[in-house]
């Protein structure tokens, strides 16, 4: 049993990393990775949202959608839930850390449309996992996202000082670097 949960975490964080292997959530990955501090903040916000969203979507699926046989509204229901969770997070961040809100900028509300969040919620349902497993799945995916986001932002801070050829400056070299990180993460294939 415990083994299974560990496996879920290893799988979501490293082997099937949402950003580098499944290519989900690339928008905030590119957008909020200019500075380590911001990336850490975004990591926390996303972890919070993802865990909460996957838990609540599990509850909504099991206790509202299935009993009333309205599974065909699943996507809409999940999006509404996620939007609410993000709205809630935004309010909390506003209150607790205005600096973080500022540095996250538009990307905080944009977690709503982070495909990783909806992806996790939908995948959970199709895999028919338990409440704990879906929570862990969401949590692991978020940790994996935050982990590579922070690593990537530290790399980008360094690359900023490099003499990159002009056509590759900024986003292009960042994308290339992300691709190389993907190559490195291929090494985990087969682990879980």
């Amino acid at each position: 049993m415990l083994n299974e949960y560990v496996l879920i975490l290893v799988s979501t964080i490293l082997v099937n990393n949402f950003v580098l292997v499944k290519f989900l959530g690339l928008c905030p990955f590119m957008g909020v990775s200019k500075k380590v501090d911001t990336a850490i903040g975004m990591g926390f916000a996303t972890t919070f949202v993802l865990t909460l969203a996957s838990l609540s979507s599990y509850v909504i699926n099991k206790y509202i959608l299935v009993p009333f046989e309205i599974e065909y509204l699943r996507t809409i229901a999940f999006i509404v839930t996620i939007a609410a969770v993000v709205g809630f997070t935004e309010l909390v961040v506003n209150k607790t850390s205005p600096v973080l809100r500022q540095s996250l900028g538009i990307f905080l509300p944009l977690i709503t449309t982070n495909c990783a969040v909806l992806g996790v919620a939908l995948l959970n349902v199709t895999e028919n996992s338990s409440l704990l497993a879906s929570g862990l799945y969401g949590f692991g995916a978020a940790i994996g996202f935050s982990f590579v986001l922070v690593l990537f932002s530290a790399l980008r801070e360094k690359i900023e000082g490099a003499d990159v050829p002009l056509p590759f400056k900024g986003a292009p070299i960042a994308l290339i670097t992300a691709g190389m990180m993907s190559i490195a993460f291929m090494g985990f294939i087969g682990l879980a």
């Binding site: 922070v150 690593l151 801070e157 990180m181 490195a184 090494g187 985990f188």
Partner: peptide, 12 residues
Amino acid sequence: FAVLLLNIAVPL
């Protein structure tokens, strides 16, 4: 792969 993975973490 291990070298590349840790290269990524070097700035941190």
